[in-house]
Design a protein around this nucleic acid. Structure first.
Lengths: 215, 215, 215, 215
DNA sequence: AATGAATGAGGTTTCATTCAT
DNA sequence: AATGAATGAAACCTCATTCAT
C-alpha cells in the first residue's frame, strides 16, 4: 500500500527546489499558520515572524500573499495528487482480480490514511475552497484528468462482474467519497483525535458493499 | 411535510424583535453579504452601504462585527433548528408505523428541501465554521439537546423492528448525513444549479436502505 | 483687469464644498507639500501631519493619493481656467477696438499677474505634467473648448486689420506663450524673486509686436 | 554644421571610461528608463533587469541611485555641453561676417537638431530639474562658464553692426531660447512626432529677426 | 568583479470602532 | 435613534541598500 504524507513530500520537494533556506522556512511557516488560523487571519508579518525572516524576505520570492498559498497548494495538486493517483491506479489494476469487497476495503484504508496524514493541507483546502474558486477549479481539473478515466473503467469492470450496482460512475463515486467525508470532515472541523482507521474501514466498507450491491 | 425557509422565518423573527427597521436592514444586508463574500471579506462599511444606513448605525445595536454574525446565526440555532426539529420529530413519530424505507425517503426529501431553501445560511455556516469554533460548539449542543434523544429512539425503534442494522446511532446518522452531504456540499461549493430533489431522493434512499439493512 | 489668485478661489471653493474642515486641511496641506516637494516625494503621512489629522482621515474622503492631486488640479482646470478665460474674452472683445499693441500689453500683464499669483499650482502642474498625462489631456481639452474659438477669432480680427502677420493662429499663440514661458519657467524652476511685471510687459510686448507685425 | 547626438557621445565616453561592460549596461538602461518612466518611478531592480545584471552589480560602482542619475547627467554637462559649445562658438566666430539673419537661421537649425537628437536626455533634464536642484545649478554654472562670454561678445558684435536691438544679452537670449522652447517643450511633453526642422527654422527665424531688430 | 538573498524602513491603503452632533 | 467624520492600528507591499559567497 502506498500512502503519502504530503508534508514530507513537500519538504523534500522544497529541498530540491531553487528556493533558499529562508524562503523554504516561509513556506513551512505559512503551511502551519494557514492550517491553524486560516489564510485571512494570517498576516505576512505573522509569517515573517514564524519563519524567522524579515517581511521583505517573504516578498522576495513571492510577489503576493496569494502566491504563497498557491505555492503550497499547487504542488499538492500537480505532484502529490497525480503521483498518488498513479500508484493507486496501478495497484488497483494489479488487484483487479480482487472482489469489489476487497478492493473497497483497500481503497478506504488507503484514502483514510492519506487524509489522516495530511490534515494540515486538508484543512487549508477545506477552508479556502470557497474564497479561492480557481483552486477548486484546478483541483477538479486534475481530478478529471488523472482519475476519471481509470476509475470509470474500474467501476465498469466491477459492474460487468456484477459486484456493483448499475449506477453512473459519478453516483457511485459520490457515495464512496461521501462516506469517507462523513468521517473526515468532522475530524477536520472539530480537530478530532486521530481516526481509528481499522474500525472505520471495517464498518464503512460493509455499508458501501451492501449499499452499492446490485439489485 | 414541513420544511422551513430560514430567510422567511428570519425576517418574521426580525419583525417581532425589538430591533428598529434600520437595524433589521443591517442584519438582512449582512446575511446576503456574508453568504456572497464571506464574513472576512465583508467590511462594516459594505454592510452600512448595502443596508442603506450610516456606519454609526451599524454599531448602535451591535457592539462588534462578530455580534452581527451572532445575531444571524443564533436564531438559526436557537429557533429554526429546534422548531423544525420539533415538527420533524412529531411527524416522524406520528408516522412511526411506516417502514424504514418510507421514513428515509420522507427524511431525505425534507432535509434536501430545507437545505435547498437555505443555501445562504448553509454557505455562511460552511464558511465560518472553522473560523468561529464557538458557533460549531453551540450548533452541536443544540443538536444534541433537541435531536439526539428522539432520533436515537427512532433509530432504536427501527432496529427493534429489524428494519435497520444494529450499529450505534452515531454511525447510522453519520452515513445518512454523509449521503446528504455528498449532494449538498458540492452544490454549495460549486454554486450548482438547484438540486433535482425527486431523483436524489429515489437514488439516495435506495442506497441507504440497502446499506443500512440488517445483515 | 481681472486676474485670479487660484489659492484664494480654491479656499473659497473649498469653503462652499461639502468637505469637512479636516478634509479641507488635507487639501490645503497637499497643495503646499506637492508644490514644495513634488507629488512623489510627499507621503500620505506627511500630508496627515501637515494637515493635523490622522492618516485614516486622509483616506476618508479621497480613496487614493492620486485623487488628492486630482482634487487640487480639477477645480483649477474646470473652474478657474474657464472663469478666467470668460472674463478675459469678454474684456478682450469689449476692447477689440484697441490696437493689437494695446491688447498684447494688456494680455501679457494679465497672464503674468495670474501666473505670479499662482506659483504653487503652476509648479505642481509643471512637475507632474509628465507623470500624469491624463492631467495634460484634460487641460488641453479645456483649453481647446474654452479658448480656442474666441482666441482664433481675435487673432483673425487683428490679422484683418493688418495689425498681425498672417500666420496660423497656432503659430502666433505659440510665440506669445513661448515668450511668456521664457519668463515664467525660469522663475518657477529657480524659485526666483517675484517678477517685475511692468518691465517685463514693456519689453516683451515690444518684442512680440515687432516679431508678429505683418511683413 | 556640428550637432551632437548625446547618446552616441555618451556611449563613446562610456567605452573609454574605466567602467566595466556591465556597469556601462547599467548606465544605458538607466538612461532609457529614466527618460521613459522618470527617476522616481524607476526602481533599482528595474535597472538591474533592463541591464541584465544583478542588483548587487548596480551598487558595485554606484553607491546610491542618485549617483546613477549623476553619472548620466554629469558627462552631459561637463563634456557634451562644452564640447558642443566650443564647436558652435568656433563656427559662429568663423561666420561672424554673416548677417544676423543668416546666423540665427544657422543657430536655430543647429539647436533644434541637437534637441531633436537628444530627446531622451532632454526629457530627463526636464523631469528631474525641480527635484534635483543641484543638477540645475551645475548646468547653469557650466552654461555661464562656457557660453556666457562668447555669446555676449557675439550679441554685442551684432548690436554694434546694428543688426540687433540694444537689449541686455540676457533678454535677447531669453527670447531666442523661449522661441526654441515653444517648439521643444510641447514636443517633449506630448511625445510629439519629430520636428519639421526646416519649416520651424524658417518661421521662427523670421519671427526673431523682426522681433529683435533695432528700433 | 559579480551575485542575489536578505533586510527593514517606509509607503499606500483598509477597516473595525468611537464619538460629538 | 441616527449620523458620518475621525481615528489609529495593522494590513499588504516596495525598494534602496548591504553583505556573505
Amino acid at each position: 500500500m502506498t500512502t503519502h504524507n504530503f508534508e514530507r513530500l513537500f519538504e523534500q520537494s522544497l529541498a530540491t527546489s531553487n528556493l533558499s533556506e529562508k524562503q523554504r522556512a516561509v513556506l513551512s511557516a505559512s503551511l502551519q499558520l494557514f492550517a491553524d488560523q486560516g489564510f485571512d487571519h494570517t498576516s505576512t508579518s505573522d509569517i515573517a515572524a514564524a519563519a524567522g525572516v524579515s517581511e521583505g524576505t517573504v516578498y522576495k520570492h513571492f510577489k503576493t500573499k496569494d502566491q504563497i498559498l498557491n505555492a503550497i497548494i499547487t504542488p499538492f495538486i500537480t505532484e502529490v495528487v497525480p503521483q498518488a493517483a498513479a500508484e493507486f491506479i496501478a495497484d488497483a489494476q494489479a488487484n483487479s482480480n480482487l472482489a469489489f469487497a476487497t478492493f473497497i476495503r483497500y481503497f478506504l484504508r488507503d484514502r483514510l490514511t492519506f487524509a489522516d496524514q495530511n490534515r494540515k493541507e486538508g484543512k487549508i483546502f477545506f477552508r479556502e475552497a470557497l474564497a479561492h474558486p480557481e483552486m477548486m477549479a484546478r483541483l477538479s481539473q486534475q481530478f478529471e484528468a488523472v482519475l476519471a478515466g481509470p476509475l470509470t473503467r474500474l467501476i465498469h469492470h466491477y459492474q460487468v462482474k456484477s459486484d456493483l450496482i448499475d449506477w453512473p460512475p459519478t453516483t457511485i463515486l459520490r457515495y464512496i467519497i461521501g462516506t469517507l467525508g462523513s468521517y473526515l470532515i468532522p475530524s477536520i472541523v472539530l480537530n478530532d483525535q486521530p481516526l481509528n482507521i481499522d474500525e472505520i474501514t471495517a464498518t464503512a466498507s460493509e455499508f458501501l458493499i451492501k449499499g452499492l450491491a446490485p439489485k
